[in-house]
């Protein structure tokens, strides 16, 4: 979808057109799924978070002042929903195991290898890499992450440092 069409749809949706909003959201279905899976492993949790984010975004849409911030805005809403579900299930997370060995060439991965790699990322995530995701992948500020996780800014910074180190140790100096 080109930007102009997207901005028109946002304006229409802000005026209360649910069809315009549905078009905007379904256009981002792949991105939303991808984002939710970064924070949640369970398919039910992913769909639950997307459903809640859809509802929250529809309700808060009049607050979106600048259509060009649509993607960032919806991402933050989804991350909030994902993180809320992550927190609920955090105590159920199994004990951390050793990270799997990274494949030599991540560009030619089989589906199975991708799953291993993602599982590895999630292993880091249990302690630190949710923070890493929020900061490096989704561009949230320390302050935003701090508010979202209800952690002091120094804890967020510490988690970032440790997450980076874990990725370096795992992937080698070529990464991060």
């Amino acid at each position: 979808m080109d930007m102009l069409t997207q901005h028109r749809l946002i304006r229409r949706a802000q005026r209360g057109d649910p069809d315009a909003f549905a078009t905007l959201m379904t256009d981002m279905a792949e991105y939303l799924t991808r984002t939710a899976y970064l924070y949640l492993a369970d398919a039910h949790d992913v769909q639950d978070a997307i459903s809640a984010a859809t509802l929250a975004a529809f309700q808060a849409l009049p607050q979106l002042k600048q259509p060009r911030h649509w993607r960032t805005w919806i991402t933050r809403i989804l991350i909030r929903q994902c993180y809320a579900r992550y927190k609920v299930k955090a105590h159920e997370i199994y004990a951390q195991e050793h990270l799997p060995e990274p494949p030599a060439d991540t560009g030619q991965l089989t589906t199975e290898e991708k799953m291993d790699l993602l599982a590895g990322l999630r292993e880091i995530n249990q302690a630190h890499a949710l923070t890493l995701m929020m900061f490096y992948y989704h561009g949230l500020s320390i302050k935003e992450i701090s508010a979202l996780q209800d952690n002091p800014a120094n804890t967020v910074k510490s988690n970032l440092r440790r997450g980076r180190q874990a990725l370096r140790d795992w992937l080698g100096e070529d990464y991060l």
Binding site: T33, Y37, T106, K114, L117, L118, L121, M133
Partner: peptide, 16 residues
């Protein structure tokens, strides 16, 4: 890197 290793399946996207 994250984009490469985290590609949702068509079924997941359809479900979304």
């Amino acid at each position: 890197f994250v984009d490469r290793v985290n590609t949702p399946s068509p079924t997941d996207v359809a479900q979304t």
